[in-house]
């Protein structure tokens, strides 16, 4: 699954999450798996929760405003993280 800056993302309904300190625990009802998101992963997850649909570009812009990171690093690591979330059926892309 290749995602680009223009890809729009939404959280799937078959999950539930809870904030635990600086991290987030997510349960996927469909697969039965449960996960831990680190602090940065939790930040991205909270943005997706607050916005029903969000483009990868918007996500990156918010990260660049809040965190001290180079754009190229941010882009690469955000893409990798989102692809992991898609693989685990926690988020989906929409047309």
């Amino acid at each position: 699954m290749n995602i680009t800056s223009n890809t729009r993302i939404q959280i799937k309904k078959s999950q539930s999450s809870s904030v635990l300190g600086t991290e987030t625990i997510v349960l996927n009802y469909e697969l039965g798996n449960y996960y831990e998101l680190n602090e940065m992963g939790s930040f991205i997850w909270s943005l997706l929760q607050a916005n029903p649909v969000l483009s990868v570009m918007k996500l990156k812009e918010r990260m660049l405003v809040e965190f001290d990171v180079e754009e190229s690093v941010c882009q690469e690591e955000l893409m990798s993280f989102l692809e992991n979330l898609i693989h685990e059926k926690l988020i989906e892309t929409i047309a």
């Binding site: 449960y34 996960y35 998101l37 680190n38 940065m40 991205i44 405003v65 809040e66 990171v69 685990e88």
Partner: peptide
């Protein structure tokens, strides 16, 4: 004539903790 300092960045990570069906 101006900002709050930016927070330290860490790589976003997703870690699989387990599976409730197997449990």
């Amino acid at each position: 004539h101006q900002s709050s300092p930016k927070k330290a960045y860490k790589t976003p990570k997703l870690k699989v903790l387990g599976n409730v069906k197997k449990l």
